[in-house]
Design a protein around this nucleic acid. Structure first.
Lengths: 196, 196
DNA sequence: CGTGTTAGCGTCAGCCACTGACGCTAAGCG
DNA sequence: CGCTTAGCGTCAGTGGCTGACGCTAACACG
């Protein structure tokens, strides 16, 4: 096997991060990133399918964490408690990656194109969770619903976590799930309108 | 005031829809759409900020429906029942627009770029719902959580509705909400792990 | 009915993201 | 020491998208 290629990839990531932080995503060209990394523009696109993806490379590990976390929850547990435990297992890696997540969020906050990509990544993650639940013999219907809902709670928790610097993620997760269960428990199934 | 401009816009929409349906989104250029509509490419971009947006023009009305539906629910109702009623009010317009929604879904199914845009639109809609709830004196934290969750349920219901041709949307919505409330009611707040 | 205003459009020139094809070369392997 | 091959450079090209400028069809007004 010839050159590793991972060096160039890392240099590209660092160059992109540096330039984006200074001038913003839109004001940086892929040619500039490549030049700063010491390669050509063509090489940039050999490592990343598009300009945005250079920022989401860290996010790729998230799917691995989700898969592992869910796999370590014993089968037979009801869907919602299963995801409740899975989310708890996701807290440590998420906290360890706080800096990376916030850096991405900071750049994405001013760039609609990046928000789009982030939203798409979330949708894929929800689909992945649903598939993993189905593989654990959860009804497809329940799986989809639980995946959407639990990810919503986690995303909400991450949001309030980021809004409160210095705090740990876990209490935000606990609060989100407790709050959610409390909000929904008021209306019992089948009698939602309150005025038939 | 000079030329209406709405004619050209509608011609562009129809031309795009026609070409996309035949050759797919990626294999059609904006210049071709413009030519079929009898205008220049430049005019296309005067009416739509980008190539994708020509497909989401109908989706714009959705924000209006959401705003109206939520406004027609009396204040003072708890957040979750409020959204439960709001979703019921959204069912008629959604059903009336079934064809448009499915045509978009069919084209988007083969085009990642369109799925991204759709995911971003959903995120914006969730943010809108949260803001409207906050304006109704719901806690920001509750608002965000309820908005995410209720939209997740509605999206799930629309999904199963589309998968079951000939059915009405309402029962799918009812089932999604009942199922969700049932799934979460098993775990009471504060005691989620089942095995401390 | 002539004149001014203006929203919509055409034209041109250009940037930048992204791609296919081809050839080169450094790294490993026998 | 040649062979293989993954990574890279080079070149040429497409297509999405934008700014600037000028034109003209519609409408308002005297």
């Amino acid at each position: 096997m010839p050159r590793s290629g991972k060096e160039a990839r890392e240099r590209l990531e660092n160059a992109a991060l540096e330039l984006f932080a200074v001038r913003g995503f839109d004001a940086v060209t892929t040619a500039e990133i490549a030049a700063l990394a010491g390669v050509t523009e063509r090489t940039f696109f050999r490592h990343f399918p598009d300009k945005r993806e250079v920022l989401f490379d860290g996010e790729r590990r998230l799917t691995g964490w989700v898969t592992e976390a869910l796999a370590s929850v014993p089968a037979g547990v009801a869907p919602w408690p299963t995801m409740r435990r899975t989310v708890d297992l996701l807290v440590p890696p998420l906290e360890a990656n706080r800096e990376g997540g916030e850096r991405l969020a900071a750049i994405a906050a001013a760039t609609p194109a990046l928000q789009e990509r982030a939203a798409a990544k979330e949708a894929h993650l929800i689909a992945l969770i649903a598939e993993l639940l189905i593989a654990r013999d959860v009804t497809p219907e329940e799986a989809s619903l639980v995946a959407r809902t639990c990810w919503g709670a986690l995303a909400h928790a991450i949001g309030s976590w980021r809004a409160a610097p210095g705090t740990s993620l876990q209490p935000h997760v606990d609060r989100a799930f407790d709050l959610l269960e409390g909000l929904l428990s008021g209306a019992s199934p089948g009698s939602h309108t309150g005025a038939a």
